[in-house]
Each structure stands twice: as C-alpha cells, then as structure tokens.
C-alpha cells in the first residue's frame, strides 16, 4: 500500500472533525475523497501533511510511520499537496517557485552551479520538463503573482510535483473552474498519475471525481460512511442520504 490511515481522529474541543477514519491507498491509484461541506475532508488532508497532530490514530507512507514527523520531513519523504485557495510565492518567479520546492542536497548544489556558472540563469532539466508539462515554459521568468488563475493552478501543481512526491493531495483543484476546464483537469491528473504519483483527490465536481478515480471514500460528519469504486458509491444508499436526505439539516461549519 502507498498511504495508510489507521483509526485517525481529530477533535477540536467537542467537535469531532475527523472520527476514527481508516483509509488505504494503493500505489498508482487515483483515490477520491468526497463528502458534504464540513465532513472532515480538509482536516484529513491536514492530518496527512502534518499541519495538525491527530487526537489518535496513525498515518504511514509505504509502511513508514509519519505520525510524529514535521511537515517538511513528510514533504521530503514524498507527501505533497495543493490548496483549495492557491498558495504560491507571489514575489518569486515561476521557475523559482519550482526551484524552492526541489529540496534535496543534490538540488541545492545544482541550484548553486546553475546560479553561478551557467549562462542564462536558472537551468535544470527537471524543472524545464515540469515547466513544459505544465505549459508554463514561456512564463518561467514571470512573477507568480502576474499569472492568470488557470496558470496559477498549474504552477501550484507543478510546484507540488517539483518535490518529487509519491503521493499528491489535491484539495478541490477544480474550484473556480468550468465543467470544460474540469475535463482538462481530469486529463492532467491522469497524466500526473502516469508519472508514477499516487493521487488523493478531494473534489466537489462529481463528474470529475466519478470520471477519473479508481476508488473513493465518502466522509460525513467526520466518519467514513462508504468506500468503493465510483459505481459502488453511486448506488450506495448511505451516500445518497448524506448528500440528499440530510443535506441542509445539521450542517456543520465549513472546514477551511
């Protein structure tokens, strides 16, 4: 297995944002995580990246326990993410946004050599390839804050890939995008998976989630209520109840 959560809980005071959730993601899988607002999806991501310490439970990557590790250590081991509201380094160039995320000793040395001994400034084959993959090569010297919304989304995903992750956590990557953009996004996510990255996708756009995930899990009020293939989930009565039956009742505050 690639990523494994066992009995993961996170309580904020009396609120059980995530309550005894266990998940297993296989290598090379696109795994969907859905649920109504406030069901604990973002909290789950924050537990995986280490922003929050769990109230109980463990998270492991390829069998290695991550639970006690700091966020940058998890990134170094292969956990990367994007944010629902994009977080770029706006005052850094597009290429620098990728350089800074390439964070090993080898990369530091390459950075040094490239800065000082190569004409034309920053040059690195990995970064060049990522820029092309993300269709940002022509913008590599622009400030990230000067990009269009779509370019910013692509740059954020490229930056996550620059750290050479094993698992990429995508937090509502289609937020603010149209249905057609969503289809393009689906192709991009598949292309990322084909690079050998397993993907955990949180998304509200159901066409996207149903279309590209191999398996998925559904959260409601912090608990996992279903897990299976997209067609299993579509026919699951509990899921229908969560989305339709109780949609406007007992609504918890949206998680950030």
């Amino acid at each position: 297995m690639m990523l494994k959560l066992e009995g993961m809980s996170k309580h904020f005071g009396g609120v059980k944002a995530v309550d005894d959730v266990s998940l297993t993601m296989n290598e090379g899988e696109i795994f969907g995580l859905i649920g109504p607002n406030g069901s604990g999806k973002s909290t789950t991501i924050n537990l995986i990246t280490g922003l929050y310490a769990p109230t109980s439970g463990t998270v492991s990557l390829e069998g290695r326990d991550l639970t006690a590790l700091a966020q940058h250590e998890r990134t170094a081991l292969g956990v990367a993410r994007t944010f629902q509201n994009i977080r770029l380094f706006g005052n850094l160039s597009v290429a620098e946004n990728l350089w800074v995320a390439q964070n090993g000793h080898k990369q530091r040395r390459q950075h040094f050599i490239s800065r000082w001994f190569k004409a034309g400034g920053l040059q690195d084959t990995n970064i060049d390839e990522l820029l092309r993959f993300s269709r940002l090569h022509s913008k590599k010297d622009s400030l990230a804050s000067a990009l269009s919304f779509g370019e910013m989304r692509r740059l954020e995903m490229a930056r996550a890939l620059a750290s050479n992750p094993k698992v990429l956590l995508l937090d509502e990557p289609a937020a603010g995008a149209s249905i057609e953009d969503g289809q393009l996004l689906g192709e991009r996510i598949r292309a990322v998976r084909d690079r050998g990255v397993s993907i955990l996708l949180i998304e509200h756009m159901m066409e996207l989630v149903m279309g590209i995930t191999d398996r998925m899990a559904v959260l409601n009020f912090g608990r996992k209520i279903a897990e299976g293939t997209p067609s299993d989930i579509q026919s699951n009565p509990d899921v229908r109840a969560a989305y339709l039956g109780t949609k406007n009742k007992n609504k918890e505050p949206a998680d950030a």
Binding site: T75, A80, L88, F89, L92, E96, V100, S163
Partner: peptide, 18 residues
C-alpha cells in the same frame, strides 16, 4: 531563495518542504 519564499508565504513554504 528559501528565505524569500518563507517571507512570501509561510504555509506554502512549509508545504514546499522548507
């Protein structure tokens, strides 16, 4: 570069492995 990135966005810096 890491210093400038951290000044720019602490959360993005953390998630970029800094």
């Amino acid at each position: 570069l890491e210093l400038r990135a951290l000044t720019d966005s602490r959360r993005a810096a953390i998630i970029s492995g800094i």
